[in-house]
Structure formats: structure tokens, C-alpha cells
Design a protein around this nucleic acid. Structure first.
Length: 431
RNA sequence: GGGCAAGUAGCCAAGUGGCCAACGGCAACAGACUGUAAAUCUGUCCUCUUCGGAGUUCGGUGGUUCGAAUCCAUCCUUGCCCA
């Protein structure tokens, strides 16, 4: 991507709706020189989830605009816990878990940025554990703590909320912003890093960093934040009944990942298409117009799902996800028998259940089958859902609790297609 | 260390001796309607169940009582005030 013909990074991010707050002087800094900028990622799990997608995309945009991105894994800060957005003290993760998580997160980040060392703006990965592990408490208090007043720290929203709230805040979490501030300072000193990006909830932590840089060495550094992703209906972004949407294909299959985006509401899709894809403005405008004319065609959702799935999982996995989606949803009225053995066997990403033929020979009732196969957690649960009309087998609604499952129901003598609700498919396979 | 207040299901929050598996709201799941949307309406929502019930809950423990989320004692946790 050529720097001079593309839009200014900030204008680009701005029309995409990826900028919430920006510190004055940031634009001038970006114009002045190739700037090094960083974003921190918390190793709270061994995989990133789609909540981290916006920061990842910011770094990618940043690098494409010719600047140098640094992804920081918070191996040290993760041990302390960020109070932002939390109304309760966190549980501390053990060192062992954190090390493993940091490694997992690092491996994922490496896939999205260009680390080619021959580039002037090659991406870098750092772990703040590397510099924090050797700093003594006394040194930290004398060299860093001395520069920031408690008054300043208490004025931060994240801290103020906790102080005024019911649960209070421990010294540990109170000190978090100093650690994050120190990260910025360290990167400023060692990597000439002059910019920090992050979610809008991080504004307070981020500005502690610029303040520290100013007071400790008279340097000038900048920050900007992206708005937090919300859903129009007020729900939490990135959650489904199955839990988080992870970037790790073994935790969330590409099919499930694709489905998540495809199921975006109209309103959300309009916002998300520009944030989560790299499509140019003209193309997005066209899509928005198409969407306006015929929302039921869901062009926005399809394009969104396609682009994001490709970015995370690659073309091949995307095609499999689309193929499975078409088989399951393209013609829902078609009887399950019309699906070929090949169709069923190649459904990657739907939940597979295995059971032995012997289990079926004498026939079992649906309720036991659903509970024993693990599709539902208990018989009671199975019973309730069936009574509520929420279970289909081979696309036929189960309308009786007495229904018997036996080999005659098997598709191609091998499969059972079980649906919980409209969208959750399970493929049970005899082995 | 002293004083005051609080701890109820995933979250918020009613409930002050039996009618309590515990009002209500949110979230979640399912159904109807649709476009695999949104909104709306309906059902479910501690666990298991042979659908008759059974078991375990209201910070912990012990007690009073025929009977406790509710009363008493004690301990723990949290917040506020004082030292």
C-alpha cells in the first residue's frame, strides 16, 4: 500500500469509526516522521478473542501507513490486573498460567503483522515481563512512583469509580496504571516509541504514560483510542451462547467464527463492516446502498463474515465455512435426506458427536439419546427443550418425548443431523 | 484496636419465623413472527427426575424452634467513620 496515494492514517481510521479520542499533536507527530506506536494485549487466556481484533487491526493499519507497530504482551501487567472497566478486584493468575498465555497470545499476533526485518517499519513483539522482572520495588518507587502524584492517579475514571463504589480497590490494582505508564516510558526510551493506541477504556492508563515520559525525561508522546465495540441491542460484543469467539480455530472453529459475523444485526453490520474489514470506502458505500435497498439479502453480513474470516483463518478455511453454511442453511426446507454422504462428511466446524452402533441397535428414546450424546447436559434439559419445540432431528421437529432413535433414522446409514434451535447443528456419527 | 453498615441464584435486587427454590429487573436459552436480523409477544431459567417427586441453596460454623434466608452466638469478607 503506497503511503502517498492513500489517505492519511488518521483520516482513514476516522471514517472507519475507529477513533474515539485523540491527543492533540498526534497528527503532527505522524506527519513528522515514521513513528513507532504500540498497543498492549493482556494475556488473560491462551488465545485472543475477537475483542482484541480492533487493536490488531489498528496495528495493521498503522503498519500499512508506513509506521512501525509494536505489540506488547502484558506478561507483567497481567500479574497485577487492570481495574479499568471492572467493578471488582480480579483474581490473580498464577505465573505459570500467565507464561503459557503470553506465549499463546504472542504466537497469534505474529500472524497478523509483518515482521520482515528488512523493512524499516518491521513489526516488533515485546513482553513487559522482560523489563519488569529485574526492577526492584524500591527502584520502582524511587524512579517512577516519585514522578506521579496520588492525586493524579486517583483522578482517573477507572480508579475513581472503584473508590466510590462498594468494593474498593487494592493497592495492587491501583498501581496498575503506573506499570502501564512505565511500559510506555520504557518503550519511549528503548524503542523511540512515541504513540500508544488502545480501547477508550484505556485512556487513563495511557495518559499516565505520556505524563511519566514528560516528567521523567521531558519527552513528548501521544495517544489515541478506538471506541469500544458495542451491539445495538446492548448486549456484550463477542459473546454467544457457546461463550467467547476466539481467534484460535481449535476453540472456535472457522465455521462458528463465520457464523458469528453472519449473524450480526443490520445496525451492527453497518458499523462493523468499516471497522473490521480493509475494504475501501467506495466499496463499503456501495455495500451500504445495496443493503439499504434489500436488507434481507444480507449483503453486508455476508461480506463482513467473509472478510473477517479470511483475515483470521485464511481463504481455504473460509471456503469450507461457506460450504458448510450453504449445506445447512441454503435450503432449510429440503429434507435432510437430500444431503449427500459427501455433504455430511465434509461439514467442518459443526459439532461432531460420535457414538457406537450398538447403542442404537435396540433403540433409545430421544431424551436419553440427547443427554448421553452430550448434545444437552441432562435429560431434564432435553425434555424441556423438546417440549418447547426446540429440537429437530434430520430437520424434522421432535414433537414427542417418546420418539425412538434407532438405526432406521440414520442418514446414509451413518449420520444423524441434530438441531438445537434454528442455528445450532450437531452431527452425530456412528462409528 | 473502637463504632456503624452490608454479604440472597450468572448479575442487580426484594424478602425479617411457616403460604420460600425464594417478588421483580437484566442477561441467557427455546417458540411464534422474520431475513440463520432487529423490535415485539410467549415459554424456560438451582440440580437431578421414572414428571409423581427427590436433593442442595440465601457469606461460614454452631445454636434456639415442631419449623430459619429470616431469631441468637461466633467467625470470615467488604465498605464507611474514628484511633
Amino acid at each position: 500500500m503506497q503511503k502517498d496515494i492513500s489517505m492519511h492514517l488518521l483520516d482513514e481510521l476516522s471514517w472507519r469509526g475507529m477513533i474515539h479520542d485523540i491527543m492533540p499533536g498526534t497528527r503532527e507527530q505522524l506527519d513528522r516522521e515514521m513513528t513507532t506506536g504500540y498497543i498492549g494485549f493482556d494475556p488473560t487466556a491462551d488465545s485472543l478473542h475477537i475483542g482484541s481484533l480492533v487493536p490488531i487491526l489498528l496495528l495493521v493499519h498503522f503498519q500499512r501507513a508506513g509506521h512501525k507497530p509494536i505489540a506488547l504482551v502484558g506478561g507483567a501487567t497481567g500479574m497485577v490486573g487492570d481495574p479499568s472497566g471492572k467493578n471488582e478486584e480480579r483474581n490473580l493468575l498464577t505465573e505459570e498460567v500467565l507464561l503459557r498465555n503470553a506465549a499463546g497470545v504472542k504466537a497469534q499476533l505474529e500472524r497478523f503483522l509483518n515482521f520482515d526485518a528488512s523493512l524499516a517499519n518491521a513489526a516488533e513483539l515485546v513482553n513487559n515481563y522482560d523489563w519488569f522482572k529485574t526492577i526492584s520495588f524500591i527502584d520502582f518507587l524511587r524512579d517512577t512512583g516519585k514522578h506521579i502524584t496520588v492525586n493524579y492517579m486517583m483522578a482517573k475514571d477507572s480508579v475513581k469509580k472503584r473508590i466510590e463504589g462498594e468494593t474498593g480497590i487494592s493497592y495492587t490494582e491501583f498501581a496498575y496504571q503506573l506499570m502501564q505508564g512505565y511500559d510506555f516510558y520504557w518503550l519511549y526510551q528503548h524503542k523511540q516509541c512515541k504513540l500508544q493506541m488502545g480501547g477508550s477504556d484505556q485512556w487513563g492508563n495511557m495518559t499516565t504514560g505520556t505524563e511519566l515520559i514528560r516528567r521523567k525525561c521531558g519527552g513528548e508522546a501521544f495517544v489515541f483510542t478506538n471506541p469500544l465495540i458495542t451491539k445495538t441491542d446492548g448486549g456484550k460484543f463477542g459473546k454467544t451462547e457457546a461463550g467467547n469467539i476466539w481467534l484460535d480455530p481449535t476453540k472456535t472453529t472457522p465455521y462458528q467464527f463465520y457464523q458469528f459475523w453472519l449473524n450480526a444485526s443490520d445496525e451492527d453490520a453497518k458499523k462493523w463492516i468499516s471497522i473490521f474489514t480493509f475494504l475501501p470506502k467506495s466499496e463499503i458505500d456501495d455495500l451500504l446502498q445495496l443493503h439499504q435497498q434489500e436488507p434481507s439479502a444480507r449483503v453486508l453480513q455476508k461480506k463482513l463474515a467473509e472478510e473477517v474470516t479470511r483475515f483470521i483463518h485464511g481463504q481455504e478455511e473460509l471456503e469450507k465455512a461457506i460450504a458448510t453454511t450453504e449445506k445447512l442453511f441454503f435450503n432449510q426446507q429440503a429434507p435432510a435426506e437430500s444431503l449427500s454422504e459427501q455433504d455430511l462428511a465434509s461439514m467442518e466446524g459443526v459439532v461432531h458427536i460420535r457414538f457406537t452402533r450398538a447403542d442404537l441397535e435396540q433403540g433409545t428414546d430421544v431424551v436419553s439419546f440427547l443427554a448421553q450424546s452430550g448434545i444437552l447436559p441432562s435429560k431434564g434439559e432435553a425434555r424441556k427443550l423438546i417440549q418447547g419445540g426446540g429440537i429437530s432431528i434430520n430437520r424434522k421437529k421432535v414433537d414427542s418425548l417418546d420418539m425412538t432413535i434407532d438405526p432406521s433414522l440414520l442418514l446414509h446409514n451413518k449420520y444423524l443431523l441434530v438441531q438445537k434451535g434454528k442455528k445450532n447443528y450437531y452431527l452425530a456419527e456412528v462409528s
